[in-house]
């Protein structure tokens, strides 16, 4: 991370730290903290996706599936087998990583539309399995009786506690991603994104790096999925379908596909737009939502971060 990024990081961290106190003072936005918890959870997914799309240049329309694998692994282990939630999280990550590896090896040989199609198909298959394996997943009616997160024997149920846990995790993920991008892997990824053939010719093991980032994005999605499970304490397959995969892609696109900050910004904005701000439009919200997407894709292809003049160049050379 450059000095500038550290400064932004500090500002954001301070803002996030005091946000609950502000929100609690103003009754009209006191529920914003609940939305922020979800925004934090989704940020972890979109950071992973941003690494994959913005830096490795690969599209994934299956992020909701990895989110779901993490969520359901945690959910099943804690509800059917009465595991403690903490050890269930790494199991979810492992499973998600293994699946991502199996799918990634053949899928990442494809490009553009074909890769989008393959990941989309895979995502739908996961969704169907979640729907059909009623005995394990509870099927379409959902998985109930999932315990809340417990740390040192204390049950985490207050929104504020969740808020700080989730955003700490999100910020750690952010720092981690920045560090990955600064390393050899990051330079290789940018080379792949610029011109894969050239990178290949220069001896960059492109296939291996792409796969690693794909697996990383799946693991991050699975961690977020575990958080989601224990926060909501209920799962149903509706949260892990194609629409959600598209939503994750949009979060990254909205903020700026080439910027980790953009991914977080886009996620927070889209979560608020979807859950709160479009309420005034009532039934019209679907049209407003579509219009926002269209405008962003047409006029801001580099996302909202591109309106900050310096942000763009800085994110270009992390």
């Amino acid at each position: 991370m450059q000095k500038r990024d550290w400064l932004i990081f500090l500002a954001v961290a301070v803002f996030l730290a005091i946000f609950p106190f502000i929100a609690a003072r103003i009754s009209a936005i006191s529920h914003y903290i609940d939305i922020m918890v979800f925004a934090g959870i989704f940020s972890i997914v979109s950071l992973g996706l941003c690494m994959l799309m913005g830096y490795a240049g690969q599209v994934s329309m299956a992020q909701a599936a990895f989110f779901g694998i993490g969520a359901y692994t945690s959910g099943i282990l804690t509800s059917h087998f009465h595991w403690h939630p903490l050890p269930a999280i790494p199991i979810g990550c492992l499973l998600s990583a293994a699946v991502a590896w199996l799918v990634g090896v053949p899928a990442l040989r494809l490009k553009g539309h074909y890769l989008a199609m393959a990941t989309l198909g895979f995502g739908e298959i996961v969704h169907i399995v979640l729907n059909q394996e009623v005995e394990w997943t509870g099927g379409p009616s959902g998985l109930v009786d999932i315990p809340s997160l417990k740390i040192l024997g204390v049950r985490i149920s207050s929104e504020e506690a969740w808020y700080y846990i989730v955003w700490t995790a999100a910020l750690c993920t952010l720092i981690f991603c920045f560090n990955v991008l600064r390393s050899r892997v990051g330079r290789a990824l940018r080379a792949i994104h610029e011109e894969e053939t050239a990178a290949d010719a220069m001896g960059v093991p492109t296939a291996r790096f792409k796969l690693q980032v794909f697996v990383l994005s799946a693991v991050l999605a699975a961690i977020a999925g575990s958080f989601y499970t224990h926060y909501v304490t209920f799962l149903n397959p509706g949260t892990f379908d194609l629409m959600w995969s598209i939503r994750f892609v949009l979060m990254v696109m909205l903020g700026g596909v080439q910027s980790l900050w953009g991914a977080v910004l886009g996620t927070v904005l889209l979560t608020f737009i979807g859950n709160e701000w479009l309420r005034v439009f009532a039934d019209f919200d679907i049209l407003v939502y579509g219009a926002i997407l269209l405008l962003v894709a047409l006029f801001l292809p580099d996302g909202l971060v591109s309106i900050f003049p310096k942000g763009r160049s800085a994110s270009g050379n992390v």
Partner: peptide, 15 residues
Amino acid sequence: RQGIGMAMMAAAFLG
């Protein structure tokens, strides 16, 4: 582009 972006930010803020 910046204008549109700013307008969207403003709209989000208003929201």
